[in-house]
Design a binder for these strands. Sequence first.
DNA 1: TCTGGGGTCCTCACACCA
DNA 2: TCTGTGGTGTGAGGACCC
Length: 504
Amino acid sequence: MRSAPTILHLDMDAFFAAAEQAAKPSLRGKPVVVGGLGPRGVVATASYEARRFGVHSAMPMAQARRLAPNAAYLVPRFSLYRTISEQVMELLGRLSPLVEPLSLDEAFVDLEAGGAADDSASARATGERLRADIRAFTGLTGSVGLAGSKMLAKIASEQAKPDGLLLIEPGTERELLGPMSVRTLPGVGPATGEHLRRAGMTTVAELAEAGEDELVRLLGKAHGAALFRMAVGYDDRPVVAERDTKSVSVEDTFDVDLHDRVRVRIEVERLADRCVQRLRASGHSGRTIVLKVRRYDFSTLTRSETLRGPTDDPSVVREAAGRLLEAVDTTGGVRLLGVGVTGLTDYTQEDLFAQAAAEEQAAAEEHAADEPAGSAHDAAPGDREAHEGDVAGVAEPVAHAERRWAAGHDVRHAEYGAGWVQGSGVGRVTVRFEEPGSPPGRVRTFRVDDPDLEPSDPLPLVPLPTDQAVAEQGPGQSSWPATRPKEVSPDGVGVSGASERSRP
DNA sequence: TCTGGGGTCCTCACACCA
DNA sequence: TCTGTGGTGTGAGGACCC
């Protein structure tokens, strides 16, 4: 806790949906829902227009479609969001060396450490400047909270949404927090909230009145004590720039429950391989292998095995996961499988031969991953929906030519210019010709093998400055964030609802 | 009308050892 | 030798977050 509100929390507004609206002018002002489009998908982000229909994060997609049948439904394009996120994080990095990213669209900044602010007035000015810069550089809006602690800064940005700034003056915390719901505090979810409600506590003030001993009795030592401190507005957690990864995992929910034991085994091995790929990409190896199984009735169990030493060998992880699977009863069906590795270290302590073999295999897998989209993981459930756009409605694996035109992806036509794929199927691809700076564009349909049509990289959401404009700013002046939109992996977008009406 | 994916942290139970 | 205790490692599950 500090005497000046110099901890800043930034939260981008409806980030994934806003990015799609910025990239696709025809979707601006319309309800947009981003999330998994499969039968078991959930909403990742809903635009504010969609929220008016009652759609919100974590809601089953089927329910969202009932509430907002005319919304545009899109699959997330993480590489695009990551590019935008890097631009935003770079802007934050100019304020302070102490930036703690929480996710692609959220971060804490210690303004004091960067000398960017030392009192309320300078903190507020810095926050407003940051919001203006984010809008100028990305075309998106973010909300800023400023306070003397991380908890309060986060609460402030939440209150400021959308597109606002709120500063909490030190000394006013308890007064402000008192009437708020216990669910406002970080760490109080549905279960803890209900637990507290049964104990007669629904507001933060009631938590503070109950006292630390009572909260510890109800919730346990760590949780109870932490919650009491939060309730009285005390939070001295520092902004931490670098955090070590503790675990790496991959999981897949299947469109239809798996019953075949052999198939389950194959999926576990596939997940183990994907997990090792990630593990290696992060430069880690790990000692404990974890298998996660969610059964037909949504009951979830985990089984783990700790090895004698850390590994990043796919065969070792595959075998361990397979052994763990042997001990699990899967009768009735399996809804989800996951494989993870914990107990991470930065290197492998196994013998050098194993290490060399592992590296060879990693190189081979990396080569395979560079091949055209769809060749490596067509059978993997997580990838399948990405290639079969909602609009295209293709039940069978799409033909290679059509696979080039994943719905939502950017394209360029020799005559009509830049656009994005609205759908494809039966030898045709439908493109809406518009780009971030243009008015909503027209839709045209082409043969999938039209030589004038080519896939292209995503365009910047706002025009990049000319070299002249940069030069005029002079050396050392604020300049465009270095990160540029780069190649986006074929993670696919399917569109339905509003845009589906313009299908050929 | 069903409930994603990738994480973190905490608690509890149990075995083992000093 | 037996019993109690406390620390540590491991395994499982739950809650929470974005």
